[in-house]
Design a binder for these strands. Structure first.
Lengths: 260, 260
DNA sequence: TTGCTCCTCACGTCACGTGAGGTGGC
DNA sequence: TTGCTCCTCACGTCACGTGAGGTGGC
């Protein structure tokens, strides 16, 4: 039997390491062959056929624990299994294609942390001349928002996009951008509050009949307001000034009796 | 800071488990964030951006140990790395395509253990009417041969294909197929030996000038002879009969003084 | 009050890789 | 004789998974 293969010959022909063949013996996938006079394993052609089959399946991503059943399966069972394996391979190929796109995005500096609708909204803000500082602030807010309420983002973005396309609201918002980093006692804040109120009065007249036009969760409003308060230092002061002028809240602003 | 994300919110937004995020903290890929009053981790937008970046690279197959360097790389370094990552992804896609073909071969019953040249040779044997038993015997021999001397197989197959296309040699070989499983004292063996000798005499006259036409390794001849001896029970008797008639060896048969 | 989320160890998993220490064949 | 292959433990690796046992928020 001197023509029979040593473990090294078997392994290299199948393109695996000697350790891998021994691993398959331990796992019971490949039967232990006879030993020669010095205790070396000696393999025949059948072992090569089996090992190549094992490798073909293992390389296709089939867990070794599934192999014993597959190796004794009849043609019909095997055909069914191979269809499933092929589907998995196709899915993995599609995944890698998606990975390639993601990596390309990363390389061109995009962050991938935001849904496309928000990315488009932020791009439009930049286009309209909003200060970069404000855009970044919005970006961080929307990241948190998207993580907390993923389902609400798309419709929220529609509302926000409509808002910045409204000329008067946009102007107000642009000016607010200049006050994002200001202190609570900044003298421009009362003026801004006056302008917000003037704008709101007009809106409230215009849309008096469509009070519940946005069926948005109250908890979402609270979340958005909180984000505003946490990211803009002078936000609390602005809300205070608005309350003095008869309004409460921010995202879903409402008329109340004036505090002062 | 109530708008900040819990570990569960962060994880599910990035499409990973909570355990994975904690794993990245331990590995130092994602900085440990501040804790809230009850010891819970609280994450901001920056953590989301980082985690998504980590996941994009990890899903692309980049080992976590390479990530620290990549996460602080400048645009140029990152572009170079991303090209390499993309190459690897393409290679993995090509691998899966090859896997798909291999699995399809397995499903249709092919063994994949033999190089195509041998498969073609065996198919031609069947076409020419060789007994299945002989074809199987050749198959097993060539599997061992291919594993022992992978480089010799292609040229050997050319020789073998030429041999079975030679009508007189083929006839001899076809008849030998009937004696593959016979005992050493089978009465047909001496007759076969006579026919082999008659054929050889003719060949030796025809090719007298081209003695070293095949520059084949002597060790390969020994290997092929040994395979013959081990796989055919009556082989030793046939070689004995040939030596009585003035020839020695089998694969590289030579004229010698007759033994008897 | 119940269930869900969070916390920290710490061992398990999968498919081998990698020495450690020793023997056999050319 | 030297180098290469083979042998058997047995621990290591990679990227988390999976309880174990306990606390905090609605």
């Amino acid at each position: 039997m001197t023509t029979m293969l040593t473990i090294g010959q078997l392994a290299s022909y199948a393109g695996v390491t000697v350790r891998t063949v021994r691993h398959y013996h331990v796992k019971g996938l490949l039967p232990e062959p006879e030993r020669d006079h010095s205790g070396y394993r000696r393999y025949g052609a059948a072992a090569v056929v089996e090992l190549v089959k094992i490798r073909t399946l293992a390389e296709a991503g089939v867990p070794l624990s599934r192999l014993p059943a597959l190796l004794v399966a009849d043609a019909e069972e095997f055909a069914a299994a191979s269809l499933e394996i092929d589907r998995r391979l196709q899915e993995e190929i599609a995944e890698r294609e998606r990975c390639r796109e993601h990596i390309a995005h990363l390389a061109s500096g995009d962050s991938l942390a935001l849904p496309p609708s928000v990315v488009a909204y932020l791009a439009r803000m930049r286009e309209l001349g909003f200060r970069e500082r404000l855009v970044e602030l919005e970006r961080d807010s929307w990241i948190l928002m998207a993580a907390k309420m993923p389902d609400a983002i798309v419709s929220l973005m529609e509302i926000k996009r409509a808002q910045i396309e409204d000329p008067s609201l946009r102007e107000l918002y642009l000016d607010m951008g200049d006050l994002v980093d200001c202190a609570a006692d900044d003298p421009r804040l009362p003026t801004l509050a006056d302008r917000v109120v003037a704008f709101l009065e007009e809106v409230f007249v215009r849309y008096e009949d469509t009070e519940d036009a946005f069926p948005v969760d109250q908890r979402l409003f609270e979340l958005l307001d909180q984000t505003f308060l946490e990211s803009v230092p002078c936000a609390w002061r602005l809300l205070e000034l608005l309350e003095e002028r008869g309004f409460t809240g921010w995202t879903n602003i409402q008329r109340v009796p004036a505090v002062r």
